[in-house]
């Protein structure tokens, strides 16, 4: 039996989306595939909950979006990191690292995390 996928912390999803889009513009479905892939299927995004997050980030101005054709010539909404989004990504990555470091210290000697 595979390990039960971890629930995604609120806020972590934002960071993952921003990180994913740092690779280049993509549409919602591609983002969900990418996140699943990157986390080796450990992190499991309830696919639909991606969209509120995308719209929230767009409203916040960190993403821009436009409708254009995919390679199969289908219309899809492509999201892209804005300049503000790039800054946000850097800030959030930094604070994430600080937190994991702190959590690691609390958990002490245990190497595994």
């Amino acid at each position: 039996m595979p390990p039960r996928p971890l629930d995604l912390l609120q806020g972590t999803l934002d960071l993952l989306i921003l990180r994913t889009l740092a690779l280049g513009p993509m549409h919602g479905w591609a983002i969900s595939q990418r996140i699943q892939q990157m986390s080796d299927d450990v992190l499991r995004v309830n696919q639909g909950s991606l969209y509120p997050a995308l719209h929230r980030l767009e409203t916040a101005g960190w993403l821009s979006a436009e409708w254009r054709a995919t390679e199969q010539n289908r219309q899809a909404k492509f999201y892209q990191l804005t300049r503000a989004g790039q800054k946000q990504l850097r800030a959030e990555t930094e604070s994430w690292e600080r937190m994991t470091e702190a959590v690691g210290k609390v958990l002490g000697g245990s190497e595994g995390f």
Binding site: N46, Q47, G48, S49, Y51, P52, A53, H55, R56, T59
Partner: peptide
């Protein structure tokens, strides 16, 4: 099924849009 509860997501999008 993978997508999850449609209505909730729609409501969340609306909320995200203010």
């Amino acid at each position: 099924r993978n997508f999850g509860p449609m209505d909730k997501h729609n409501a969340d999008v609306r909320e995200a849009r203010g």
